[in-house]
Design a protein around this nucleic acid. Sequence first.
DNA 1: AACCGTCAAGAGCAGTGCTCTCAAATGTTG
DNA 2: CAACATTTGAGAGCACTGCTCTTGACGGTT
Lengths: 245, 245
Amino acid sequence: MTDPGASTETIPLQRTPRERARAQTIADIVRLGRVHLATDGAAALSLRAVARDLGVVSSAVYRYVANRDELLTLLLVDAYDELGDAVDAAVDAVPEHDFAGRFTALGRAVRGWALKEPARYGLLFGSPVPGYQAPAGRTTTPGTRVIFRLVGIVDSAYRAGALAPEPGAAVVPSALSADLAAIRAELGLEVPDAVLANGALVWTSLFGTVSFEVFGQYGAETFSARDELFEHHLAVLARLAGLRD
Amino acid sequence: MTDPGASTETIPLQRTPRERARAQTIADIVRLGRVHLATDGAAALSLRAVARDLGVVSSAVYRYVANRDELLTLLLVDAYDELGDAVDAAVDAVPEHDFAGRFTALGRAVRGWALKEPARYGLLFGSPVPGYQAPAGRTTTPGTRVIFRLVGIVDSAYRAGALAPEPGAAVVPSALSADLAAIRAELGLEVPDAVLANGALVWTSLFGTVSFEVFGQYGAETFSARDELFEHHLAVLARLAGLRD
DNA sequence: AACCGTCAAGAGCAGTGCTCTCAAATGTTG
DNA sequence: CAACATTTGAGAGCACTGCTCTTGACGGTT
């Protein structure tokens, strides 16, 4: 849970005092919205409740935030960035040449953040909020940090010759190969198709596992040793990505 | 999209005409709710809107459904059953001894239903609806049909000796092993720990892949060959489950 | 000091879930 | 067939939501 009292928003330097005050108010709104989001979930996020916490009438909030969807977008970017920061910190703490270790750290960071912030994780990776469409321009960049980091690890391992040969060279069909080529070009990667396709599966599998745990799909009683289950899954996924451990 | 005109609900035989009429009305409410759910999503499901479609004032609906959450539960069970029926039909259409084929059919059925019913899929496997807690007694049984079917296929393959030796015998730690033993006992399975643990990963990975596609996590442009991507992932997951193809 | 942009407040509209009361419809029973 | 009892639908009402509009005050800039 994020401490609602810590107003540690990074506010870019503003020229006039007006702009400074305005940026501070928006930061406060995001901070309060983050608390509500973490407590009640995305669909229950209420501008009026945020206004009450801010000690202001509801219509005043609309001076700073166009509507509920824009606040949701701000919170979306905020959450993506926090997850990205957590993943970056965890990965950077592992030596560069320890590719499997870096992957494991990435997976643990994702799971740890998700379990700590289930509602915000649900906003990012759960069912879309009805009637809300995330604006592509503002959310794609922060939204791709984790997957970029993941394929970056795999690509580095490949360049270093540390990647295990893919088990049972799966030939990818041509249309998929074209997609993968585009990704490879855009991100400046070298990994071959089969590895990249497996990387995509590892990506979705990691979030699938985390989502099942966070969203309660496992049921209350089925798995009590969830840490061990996740570690086991992570090890299998590392092997699937070609990262021997 | 489910045809709102087809009132094909299975109504158990009721003694009095009153009970018959009552059951029919509840079935109509579920049918209309299903349309709203498929159109607008879970969080936007409105009892008043259902009442309007039913040609009745909102308070009258409360004669048949205690509150919004109970309607959501009815729709949850309804969706679980429809998915379970689709999966069963797809799996049963494949010869019993073709274990990999049955797994592939299961995966395709899940994806097909999810893409056809994204909002209802989101209710089942997406972020939980805020403030709503599914009653365990009424939802667990229909909610476990797919995973039971999946492990059933793997277990049958194991009994038939058709299961590939698990790649790199992963030893599962003791606490997890106890969980797996409980599952094995409850479902009457024979598969060893490592296979069962991999089966759980295959399960979560399948739904992770489907969720990413349904919830739009792939982005608009990244993957255009989604059928091929899914088929590739499915093939890798089949191998991971030990089902050679 | 005057000005003009920015701001908060309040009223108001349409929608939501849900509860309550009252009257009508309906099935059951004498 | 008639009287009864149960069930049902309608309507009003409360508290909440997102959002818009107008009004008046505050405050930085010229």
